[in-house]
């Protein structure tokens, strides 16, 4: 600890000069000053590292940029055309839409179910909450390595194969088996393990905001557990559900980490049975150095996410004011 000569008390007493100068600033001005000083670093950072980069990338998407990020060689919509005519990219778009359509309901049901169960536990609720949330703190890549090398490796000593051996099943290369596509078991279990906990916490927060008197009324009316869930819990969770659904949709459409970590063979990509749009774009932009086409792909994917989000808003509404009454 550093000991300075001045006592803290002395510091708090402003020198007369400072006091007069301070008085010239009205409270309003000083608030505005504080606002600017405190938010400026964040805004400048966002501006430089996000929005300038996004703008630059947008311009790059109309430019031929192989092994360079300088602009100037304009090619109009060629990059977009080239990408959309690439069958591997189109396949990846189809794949991600199907994947989203399947994984989102599953994740939603699993995290809501878990939230309801954990919320009903009388003893050790905090323990269960923490236990289910913990995986959310694990990095996707680290978890993917565990899934790939320990749980679902193709050798007889992998956990899945050890369990299989108890029932007389031959060792199976889980990730490499394409008919039937066993790799989906690996991908889906991994994603659920990583994500369900976080969404569960959000649902629990929503559940705890439901006024208990509604449940009392429902009980008086003779509603069973399923009827209570359908007519009280689920409708009251509307705005939470809509927000969570939105997060899940975006997370699913942007899937990359675990797909890449599970399927990459060390040297490069290519032999993976399914690839997400981001995996394809990673190859195009970062491995093959075609920044023009890569940027075009980033904007196509953004467009897809915006469309899906708007569609969801159209069908379900973004969180409605009606929830509050």
């Amino acid at each position: 600890m550093t000991v300075t000569g001045t006592r803290p008390l002395d510091k708090t007493r402003p020198a007369p000069v400072t006091a007069t100068r301070r008085r010239r600033l009205t409270e309003r001005q000083s608030k505005a000053f504080a606002f600017v000083v405190l938010t400026a670093p964040m805004l400048i950072g966002l501006g430089v590292f996000r929005y300038v980069a996004i703008g630059w990338s947008f311009l790059l998407s109309f430019s031929e940029a192989r092994r360079t990020i300088s602009l100037g060689n304009w090619v109009g919509f060629d990059n977009y055309r080239q990408l959309l005519s690439d069958e591997r990219f189109r396949d990846s778009l189809t794949m991600i839409v199907l994947f989203t359509a399947l994984i989102v309901p599953v994740t939603f049901a699993a995290s809501l179910g878990l939230a309801v169960l954990v919320n009903r536990v009388k003893r050790g609720r905090a323990f269960f909450r923490t236990a289910f949330l913990l995986p959310a703190a694990v990095s996707y890549v680290a978890a993917a390595m565990i899934w790939k090398m320990a749980l679902f490796s193709g050798v007889p000593s992998g956990l899945a194969n050890t369990l299989g051996a108890l029932f007389g099943v031959d060792p199976t290369p889980w990730i490499q088996t394409t008919s039937p596509p066993l790799y989906w078991i690996v991908l889906v279990t991994l994603r659920l393990w990583l994500q369900v906990g976080l969404y569960m916490i959000l649902f629990i927060a929503g559940l705890q905001a439901i006024p208990p008197h509604l449940y009392e009324a429902a009980a008086l009316d003779g509603a069973g557990p399923w009827r209570t869930f359908r007519s009280v819990t689920f409708p009251m969770l509307r705005s939470t559900s809509v927000a969570i659904l939105l997060l899940m949709l975006i997370a699913a459409l942007q899937a990359f980490d675990e797909f890449y970590a599970i399927f990459s063979t060390g040297a490069s990509l290519g032999s993976e049975p399914v690839r997400t749009p981001l995996m394809h774009l990673y190859g195009v932009a970062l491995q093959d150095q075609d920044y023009g086409v890569g940027s075009a792909g980033a904007f196509l994917l953004t467009l897809l996410i915006v469309l899906v989000t708007l569609l969801q808003g159209r069908i379900l509404g973004f969180s409605r004011a009606g929830d509050k009454d």
Binding site: R88, S268, L269, G270, S271, E272, P273, G283, V284, Q287, D288, D290
Partner: peptide, 14 residues
């Protein structure tokens, strides 16, 4: 040979 050619070739072989 480029990484894109490699990816396309290996994907075809797979």
């Amino acid at each position: 040979w480029t990484q894109a050619m490699q990816a396309g070739f290996i994907a075809a072989a797979a």
